[in-house]
């Protein structure tokens, strides 16, 4: 769980960095997108790096899902009769929403891949082979942006607990200072990534990027 989670964190950090290219304009963004496909040529075939990343991510996803389901299953079996009243005191909202938040993110990822990668849906009815235009056309539609913002909120929550939790699971939080750092890391990762991803849709919606 922790290792695959950290891989995802690394991935979304890079992904977010790439998205911010949108601020550099149409050509810059599309060059970046094209470069991702040609990276490593000629040693790697076209899209070689992308496929390595994709396979890695699929493996991490499988691991992450498997661990999550196993934990979920175990916790279900560990308490088959529920409390009539149960209060939560020591836990953050993010820690308690990991499971359903994770399911939300999974659904989002499926939609996101349909939207931008596999099918490529342009709600404007415009062209889908220009990445920059596809982004701009999509987020000019308000409900599209809303879907993405909700997903980013879920991602932020997931990362807030997930970052700290993965560090704790790997046993890197045994001192008070290390614990504080891990908690701070949770906030930083959550805000930077969820916030960074949200910038492009928001700026598109409000017409700053067009």
């Amino acid at each position: 769980m922790a290792v695959s989670g950290l891989l995802f964190i690394a991935f979304v950090l890079l992904h977010m960095y790439g998205n911010l290219k949108a601020f550099a304009g149409h050509d810059s963004y599309n060059t970046y997108a094209e470069h991702l496909r040609t990276f490593g040529e000629p040693i790697l075939p076209r899209e070689g790096l992308l496929w390595i990343l994709r396979l890695g991510l699929i493996a991490a996803l499988a691991l992450h899902l498997y661990s999550a389901l196993a934990l979920w299953h175990r916790s279900g079996k560990a308490r088959t009769s529920k409390y009539v009243v149960k209060k939560n005191l020591g836990s953050s909202f993010s820690s308690r929403t990991m499971r359903w938040g994770g399911v939300t993110l999974l659904l989002f990822v499926v939609w996101h891949l349909i939207h931008f990668t596999i099918v490529k849906v342009n709600p404007d009815g415009g062209a889908t082979n220009d990445p920059y235009n596809l982004v701009v056309d999509s987020f000019q539609v308000w409900w599209m942006t809303i879907i993405y913002l909700v997903a980013m909120a879920a991602l932020g929550l997931h990362l807030h607990h997930g970052t700290w939790s993965s560090l704790q699971t790997l046993g890197w939080t045994s001192t008070a200072a290390a614990r504080t750092r891990a908690k701070i890391a949770g906030w930083v990762v959550a805000i930077v990534i969820a916030g960074g991803f949200s910038l492009v849709p928001l700026f598109v919606l409000f017409g700053v990027i067009d």
Binding site: G90, S95, W164, T169
Partner: peptide
């Protein structure tokens, strides 16, 4: 048959 830890912190509270 105890569950797995997800570092939630209810225990220590």
């Amino acid at each position: 048959g105890f569950g797995g830890c997800t570092n939630i912190g209810e225990c220590t509270a």
